[in-house]
Design a protein around this nucleic acid. Sequence first.
DNA 1: ATTGAAAATGAAAGTCGTTTTCAATTGGCG
DNA 2: CGCCAATTGAAAACGACTTTCATTTTCAAT
Lengths: 152, 152
Amino acid sequence: MKELLRTKGFKSTPQRELIFDCFFSLGKHVSVDELYQKVRELDPSVGHSTVWRNLKLICLLGLAEEVNIGDGITRYDRTTPKPHGHFFCRSCKKLLEFDVGSVMGALVEAAHEFEFEPDGYKIEIQGYCSDCRQDGRTNDVATGSANDERKA
Amino acid sequence: MKELLRTKGFKSTPQRELIFDCFFSLGKHVSVDELYQKVRELDPSVGHSTVWRNLKLICLLGLAEEVNIGDGITRYDRTTPKPHGHFFCRSCKKLLEFDVGSVMGALVEAAHEFEFEPDGYKIEIQGYCSDCRQDGRTNDVATGSANDERKA
DNA sequence: ATTGAAAATGAAAGTCGTTTTCAATTGGCG
DNA sequence: CGCCAATTGAAAACGACTTTCATTTTCAAT
């Protein structure tokens, strides 16, 4: 890791190494705060902004990318050799990955038709995972006030 | 519109009617502020929070849904009979729609495999549109500091 | 090993879109 | 018409993200 940083022109610091290590050990879709907590367990002196900056650096290095599922929290997802999509469970907030190999062709083609030069794909399916689907939730609008979907 | 509101248990107010009308006349991916500006042209007394609340209500009624492209601004997209994906140009921030009929089958199937009950799909392709692709931007990481991707 | 320029850090503050609060107003059923 | 609950508007609160700045640290060149 030290080598990668050097070759890209970044310095290696204890905090940075720790943050990188923690990020890759967590290995799932983490938010800044989740990573911050993890880092803090091992070194409580590391600041929030340092974690944030290094998470950005990880993205800049191409090792991760941001995932926005619309709940206002940015998560960071390790880049994988194969592109993948996400299932986002509205109930338990779980994020599951699934293979999107079968749809990439069509997307690339669509981009081509529009003369659009793609450099990123986000495929997200929202709904309820197998653990949560029994709750039978509906989007019946008549049962609530204009604002009560926030807690849903 | 008045009827739809009534049947769902919401009141019809001049502001609400105006906001709904403006939203559907704009008819594209609008942010709260864009809609607020439009509404203000016709009635400067309408408040920001009223626009926001009614945009939420429009979503709650199933007439629109939120689109998050990761730039921190929530946009609202009229629900269409056919699902569609978005091209998001990193340069000019334009949002273009494209048909995703050809990939829906695979996505539904993927959801089924995971026993996931989908109720929403987001397919977004990021990159550069035909007007912007000549800028030859690269993601060369060595050329900048850890933070300079923000302005990209 | 020492040094100095540039980069990195940490605490705190700033930013900005979103959301809530609350008092006043209004819609609509009885 | 009169009441009650829904709605409104202004302002404040909220919260995640981002920047600032003084201090510390890294690392290449002595």
